[in-house]
């Protein structure tokens, strides 16, 4: 449903993407792996329309998205949960969730908020607390919950495990899987390749702005070369 074709993009003056092609089919989890500076976040920002690619094509359901604004993408159901959480620290947990539904005008917002609270019961307990006072893990839950409030068809998750206690990481990954089971496609950017491959259907490995390797996550995980280079085993 979402498709990048030979995308070149600059991040400042750095030629960050040098021809990235990838696809996110309906209902799947796709992981996008690679080291620091490989171009993972830039790819997400191209999809969210924060960065305009120099070359290449970006389509959603067969239509080019190259002239759309960031808010158009949210309307289309392509929602990014950014790196480092970036919750609004001075807004309460509930206000953060409301912002997630900013584009929506339907009446089910309250219902979806309850659903987020069932995914993350801790957030409900902290409903009226300022988001800045939450722990890192809780902020990540809030960031994911906030993106869910926009009713994503495709959720772009940028490093949900970054700087979070290991116990919480597995909890968060379990929920990511659950979100996917309810029909949302996920493009998961991760440094934690092992974790990401274990829940995704298909993986792309970026290196210096190019797709160095791609394949079914199961196959890649068992590939000796990949294990040596990316999984550190």
């Amino acid at each position: 449903m979402l498709k990048l074709n030979d995308v070149h993009a600059f991040y400042g003056r750095v030629h960050a993407l040098r021809g990235v092609s990838l696809e996110v089919p309906e209902g799947k989890i796709i992981s996008l792996l690679g080291g620091n500076g490989a171009g993972k976040s830039t790819t997400l920002n191209v999809i969210s329309r924060l960065i305009q690619p120099k070359e290449g094509n970006f389509e959603l359901n067969g239509q080019s998205m190259l002239k759309k604004s960031p808010s158009d993408m949210v309307k289309q159901g392509v929602i990014q949960c950014p790196e480092n959480r970036r919750v609004f620290p001075l807004l309460t947990v509930e206000e953060n969730l409301k912002i997630g539904a900013y584009q929506r005008k339907d009446k089910n917002i309250q219902l979806d908020m309850e659903k987020v609270y069932t995914y993350f019961p801790r957030l409900k307990e902290r409903k009226i607390q300022k988001a800045g006072t939450l722990s890192g893990g809780e902020q990540q839950m809030l960031a994911i919950g906030r993106s869910l409030m926009g009713k994503p068809k495709i959720l772009l998750l940028d490093e949900p495990s970054l700087g979070i206690a290991p116990i919480l990481v597995s909890e968060i990954f379990k929920i990511i899987k659950e979100i996917n089971n309810e029909g949302t496609a996920i493009l998961l950017v991760e440094q934690n390749a092992h974790m990401a491959m274990s829940i995704s259907d298909y993986s792309y490995i970026l290196e210096n702005g190019r797709v160095a390797l791609e394949g079914n996550s199961e196959d890649l995980k068992n590939d000796d070369e990949v294990r040596k280079l990316y999984l550190g085993a």
Binding site: L50, S69, S71, P82, F88, P89, E95, I99, R146
Partner: peptide
């Protein structure tokens, strides 16, 4: 008002939530 407060705190995150 909520959009104003959000934009004041984090421009990028606000854009990603669909705020113009």
């Amino acid at each position: 008002g909520l959009a104003m407060r959000a934009s004041a705190q984090d421009i990028k995150a606000s854009q990603l939530m669909g705020i113009k």
